[in-house]
Design a protein around this nucleic acid. Structure first.
Lengths: 171, 171
DNA sequence: CTTTTCATGTAACAAGTTACATGATTTG
DNA sequence: CAAATCATGTAACTTGTTACATGAAAAG
């Protein structure tokens, strides 16, 4: 149930509407925890029902701004401290297991494509890193650590795919 | 819909029952694409209904052995060639974004735990790698490539978590 | 005054999890 | 013959996706 906690986490900093949060999920959280509009609005309603968040302000066009409650913050901390992150599925890797059913050229095309994707992501993250002025606020520290993860991960994927390409020989 | 294709992929090599496949999901695919018993049996029934697999043999205790059909193999190839792997969610990373709500010590505990998990996984994969006699069969090649991914990924996670630990200072 | 953006909601479906239920066969 | 293992099935629930629907307000 991580979406729930992602929403709580985003509301720590400042109140926001579903619409605001949707944009965050479309940008900074897009590669980490994608969520759809319908899911976000639904979950916000449930969070408000259980009083982990409250509607703190109503704006124009039916806008509802949510604020994290003390109970909500406590729940976020509990999740971080007491629960283990679930292991992640990897579609990219699953496919590798079955590349033997393709021709070597088709398999290389797949790996080549993965290398290209990883390279592109790595470039984007590197440039994002360069464009931010990091200070030593909490937000910066952990944002910087998360971004570093993305950069290391995409570099690893790129290098692995390039190495794997050399392993697939024609018959 | 990757579970579907994971099952097709496993049936490429030889026929198997739901029970056999469940064991594979519990071991070699456990870290790549976990699936539950209930999910596997359900999906096998659907796959048989759409004739991507067939019941090729009935054994004792109601055992049903499934075999991949030509249509099933074609569908597996189509999936590999024509569809893009979906992006993966990362619970581990999501949590990093919110570590600022914990004390520095609690945040370090989290990162320390991640480092330990990654180290353990890396050791396991390294020893698994050492215990296999790799030849140049298709199966070996792609199995080897997949295992290499696991090793590089776990090493990356370990190194990242250890680096991150040095970034979290007390106030 | 038309288009774009803001803003929320819901219905239908697919995928994944947990728990329960059942019974046959093999092993000690 | 008791316990472990083999083997499948299903029901209830949660999570995630796609698509449709509606309308207010701001911008040009």
């Amino acid at each position: 149930m991580s979406l729930r906690h992602a929403l709580l986490g985003l509301l720590v900093e400042h109140p926001a509407s579903g619409y605001d949060l949707l944009k965050t999920f479309g940008t900074s959280l897009a590669n980490v925890w994608p969520a759809t509009q319908s899911q976000i609005y639904g979950e916000l309603t449930k969070l408000a029902d259980s009083e982990l968040i409250v509607v703190s302000e109503q704006g124009p066009r039916g806008r509802k701004e949510y604020t994290l409650t003390d109970t909500g913050l406590a729940e976020l901390r509990r999740w971080l401290i007491e629960t283990e992150p679930q292991r992640t599925r990897s579609d990219v890797l699953l496919r590798v297991f079955f590349l033997g059913v393709l021709t070597p050229q088709q398999a290389r095309d797949y790996l080549d494509n993965q290398a290209a994707h990883a390279t592109k992501l790595h470039e984007e993250l590197k440039s994002l890193d360069g464009s931010i002025e990091w200070d030593d606020e909490d937000l910066s520290i952990y944002g910087r650590i998360a971004l570093e993860y993305g950069q290391r991960f995409s570099a690893m994927q790129r290098d692995w795919a390039e190495w794997a390409l050399t392993q697939v020989k024609d018959k």
